[in-house]
Structures are given as C-alpha cells and as structure tokens.
Lab assay of single mutants.
Amino acid sequence: MTLTLTVPPGAKVRVRITNENGETTEIEVEPGETVTITLPAGSTVRVEVEVVDPDGRKRTETFTLKP
C-alpha cells in the first residue's frame, strides 16, 4: 500500500506514521515536494498529517489505514 502526498507551495507538512507495535516514523515534506510512502503490507497504520500554511495556521488530519 502506498500513500502519496503533494505539498502545495508555501505549506509545510509533517507526517507521523504509527504501526500496530506503536513504532512511529516521522517525516517532514518541504513546500512543492511530492513524496510517496510505502506502508507495510497487511498492517494497520495510523497516519497523522500536520499542515502549516504560509500564514502560520496549523491543521491536523488523522486517519487509519487497514489492509
């Protein structure tokens, strides 16, 4: 399973991925970048995406991906 994120110009994104064992991976994606994350097959993962807009506003979306 893959997750692809494209960050709009001016925004910053931090992604936290937590697996079933509670292990967390965190990455930051710079403005204008596209990143593809390969998620472990057969695992349920929690993905938290934090977006910081150019004006400093933050918003966070959290979702769970199941196999």
Results as ranks from 00 to 15, higher is better:
residue 24 T to A: 07
residue 54 P to H: 04
residue 19 N to T: 11
residue 64 T to F: 15
residue 12 K to C: 13
residue 24 T to H: 08
residue 8 P to L: 12
residue 41 A to W: 13
residue 50 E to P: 01
residue 1 M to C: 15
residue 53 D to L: 14
residue 56 G to M: 00
residue 24 T to S: 08
residue 27 I to P: 14
residue 7 V to K: 01
residue 52 V to G: 01
residue 26 E to H: 05
residue 5 L to W: 09
residue 24 T to D: 10
residue 4 T to N: 05
residue 3 L to C: 13
residue 34 T to S: 06
residue 55 D to V: 01
residue 47 V to G: 07
residue 25 T to L: 13
residue 21 N to Q: 09
residue 17 I to V: 08
residue 55 D to N: 03
residue 45 V to H: 06
residue 1 M to A: 05
residue 14 R to T: 11
residue 43 S to E: 15
residue 18 T to I: 15
residue 46 R to C: 09
residue 13 V to Q: 01
residue 53 D to E: 04
residue 60 T to P: 00
residue 30 E to L: 05
residue 8 P to A: 12
residue 32 G to R: 12
residue 20 E to V: 04
residue 16 R to T: 04
residue 9 P to D: 08
residue 46 R to M: 11
residue 49 V to G: 00
residue 57 R to Q: 05
residue 66 K to C: 15
residue 7 V to R: 01
residue 54 P to V: 08
residue 20 E to M: 06
residue 60 T to Q: 01
residue 1 M to V: 08
residue 10 G to D: 05
residue 12 K to L: 05
residue 62 T to I: 14
residue 23 E to R: 07
residue 55 D to G: 01
residue 24 T to R: 08
residue 15 V to K: 01
residue 48 E to S: 04
residue 29 V to C: 11
residue 20 E to Q: 06
residue 46 R to T: 08
residue 21 N to G: 10
residue 3 L to K: 06
residue 35 V to A: 05
residue 2 T to P: 03
residue 23 E to M: 06
residue 39 L to W: 07
residue 60 T to V: 09
residue 23 E to V: 08
residue 7 V to D: 02
residue 25 T to A: 05
residue 5 L to Y: 03
residue 62 T to Q: 03
residue 18 T to K: 04
residue 25 T to P: 08
residue 16 R to V: 03
residue 17 I to P: 03
residue 34 T to M: 11
residue 5 L to I: 07
residue 2 T to I: 12
residue 14 R to G: 11
residue 61 E to H: 14
residue 3 L to P: 15
residue 37 I to M: 06
residue 22 G to L: 07
residue 14 R to Y: 07
residue 17 I to S: 11
residue 53 D to K: 00
residue 47 V to F: 02
residue 4 T to I: 12
residue 66 K to V: 15
residue 56 G to F: 00
residue 28 E to C: 04
residue 7 V to C: 08
residue 4 T to V: 10
